[in-house]
Design a protein around this nucleic acid. Structure first.
Lengths: 369, 369
DNA sequence: ACACCGTGTGGGAGCGCTCCCGCTCAGAAT
DNA sequence: ATTCTGAGCGGGAGCGCTCCCACACGGTGT
């Protein structure tokens, strides 16, 4: 056995993962702060201060450290820093929903993009957690207790989702996207679902429709309930009843089926407010299949203003909600919370986008029912 | 000052974040392994072994530790463990693309879900990184060097994406989703785009179409090129030319515009192979707008088999690719790599799904061109 | 001359864990 | 009895960083 320079002395305790410090540091592996300090001829403390541009570092040392760091390609070890500071530099975005297809909705991509934009600026990582309700609560509570994250954004929208209660089990900041039906959380961002639905319905009313029905999403989602309430608000104000309602999931097929049911129960309806664009697209298909012209016979208004709203035939009048802004505000709020601020909940405005499926007034060349 | 057993001697240096160990541990804050060990009456080493169910722990101690851990609600601190083991327990899924809307494609949600399923079982966290090409490379290289992750899945599909080169800058495992056009990476998973496109085109041919055009996605994407090649393969085999081609982005609108251009240049075409369902939906819209019946006048085949394929009118014949499996295989491969195995690249099969937009033979009651 | 700052500086403890190592002490082999 | 095992156990170093603290030193105030 060659007794080489790496230190073969019997008394010397072997280093566990020792890479020989006398060799040039492996650029792939990354240098340590110690190596930077040594190369710059300063103490580790001084190097640390220089890297975190704290004050109390002389210009000469600061420059020496910066040069050494650059030469070695030094990037601080995030884990070690996290252990020392008790901040890991990443936050979790948790989705809940037993239906995995739920996540496929472009709505989520948009939210994620809004979130990601903000986090990138704050140098925070985004950990994604797709949790079914079943094991979701345990999983996320483990995550929080393992101190693997600095904060949580929750999209746990369903009424009885156990995720709604993780806030009680931790001191970490949590912000909700949308209010759960079970009590209002301390911090959340939401869209003005009720107001948007109301103005959509008012639009239908102002264009002369009177026999208006609604198709809602699942009623254990706050958003679905709020949108229905907005619909009911407007109908009540017009002295009309809001009881032509069908509930379904948020899918295209669900919308089509609900529309079919509505048609058979209320063949005379002349307008329908649908709780999402996806369902509205399905509803339009069903209307056509049953020989109804849109908007001549039945006007349709959706909700969300996703791409699909521009692709239906006729294009969909819909309530636009600022989905990316939702993600943006959620991340911003979380960061505020992490900084010890106490921001107020945010409700983002929605607005109606008028397209062909429900024009402002009945088109002259439309057939009048 | 009570001189209690915890040691209040004046000379003793104060602990930095010391929470008084004589108090009952804060359940929200989480106990440490030391506390568990003390409560179980064993050494920290033994507690560690018990928690990681290593051998060399007597049953009695193991049970004592487990009880203590349960009573204290002990969850290991992930950061400390990561520092000690040099494994952080999370992997990155990085998307690149200057066009942020790109990410909105349901394709990505599906991939993410496939990935998430596998990672959950392996107790790995998923860090999402949306990187524009501009700063993406620097960002991801920082991420890798900061040892914040154990491996990377890259969806850097465009030809000159600098992300294609991060593999050279690290020793961490990297797997690609789809092959970049610039050379084949060491590890990747991909769908059989070329074969799928070929069988789609052959389907068109076998139903009697001869004047077949193609609409492709951006040609700096390997998938677009491969799909065009598959189209060209089939056409060549049939002795036909494959030069009726339009390129566009993957959007609905792009598909519609490309179809319109095709129609004006080749008014006599009777079939079109489209490189994505989204574009195909747009193309169908454009065909109808120009008075062509689908499939009577022009048959349309798409690629992807997303939800939209079932929602067009007529429903879209398309090449189904196993998108979730793509994510599944990608994550599985990464885990293998992390375990020191050297898996082979994977190319997943695609298959044709025949629907109304391109039936197997010209329908009897269709008008024959 | 003295005390009194404030800025720079390095030493060193500590974050919570893992894992190496050497010790002890049954029980099996001699 | 004596040696040999090996399972069980605790001590303690170490992962790479931050940050507290004590101290040195030049400059200002009495």
């Amino acid at each position: 056995m060659p007794d080489d320079a790496t230190g073969g002395s019997v008394s010397e305790p072997p280093r566990r993962l020792a890479s020989d410090p006398s060799k040039q540091p492996d650029l792939l592996k990354g240098a340590t702060l110690d190596e930077v300090a040594r190369r710059a001829g300063v103490s580790r403390s001084a190097a640390s201060r220089a890297m975190n541009n704290a004050r109390n570092v002389s210009l000469s040392k600061r420059e020496a450290v910066e040069r050494a760091a650059k030469e070695l390609g030094y990037i601080p070890n995030a884990t070690a820093r996290a252990l020392a500071t008790n901040k890991v530099g990443s936050v979790v975005l948790a989705f809940s929903g037993d239906d995995p297809a739920f996540f496929g909705d472009p709505f989520f991509s948009q939210v994620i993009m809004g979130v990601a934009t903000v986090l990138e600026k704050a140098e925070l990582d985004l950990t994604l957690m797709l949790a079914s309700s079943a094991n979701g609560q345990a999983r996320i509570e483990r995550l929080l207790k393992s101190r693997r994250t600095d904060g949580v954004m929750l999209m746990a929208l369903r009424r009885d989702d156990p995720l709604n209660r993780v806030a009680d089990a931790t001191d970490l900041p949590i912000v909700f996207c949308g209010r759960p039906l079970t009590g209002e959380p301390r911090w959340y961002v939401d869209a003005d679902n009720r107001g948007g639905a109301r103005s959509a319905t008012e639009h239908l009313l102002s264009s002369g429709r009177r026999r208006i029905a609604a198709i809602t999403g699942p009623m254990d989602l706050e958003a679905s309930v709020a949108r229905y309430q907005g619909f009911a608000d407007a109908m009540a104000l017009a002295g009309l009843s809001a009881d032509r309602v069908e509930h379904t999931d948020f899918s295209h097929e669900g919308g089509a089926q609900a529309m079919t049911r509505l048609l058979s129960r209320h063949p005379d309806l002349d307008g329908v407010f649908v709780g999402s664009d996806n369902m509205a697209a399905g509803a339009i298909g069903a209307l056509k299949a049953h020989g109804r012209a849109v908007p001549a016979d039945v006007a349709v208004v959706g909700f969300d203003d996703l791409d699909v709203a521009r692709q239906t035939d006729p294009a969909l009048t819909t309530v636009s909600q600022p989905i990316r802004a939702l993600g943006h505000e959620m991340a911003t709020m979380l960061i505020r919370l992490m900084n010890g601020e106490r921001p107020s909940p945010i409700i983002l405005p929605t607005h109606l986008v008028v397209r062909a499926s429900a024009p402002s007034r009945r088109d002259p060349h439309d057939v009048d029912g």
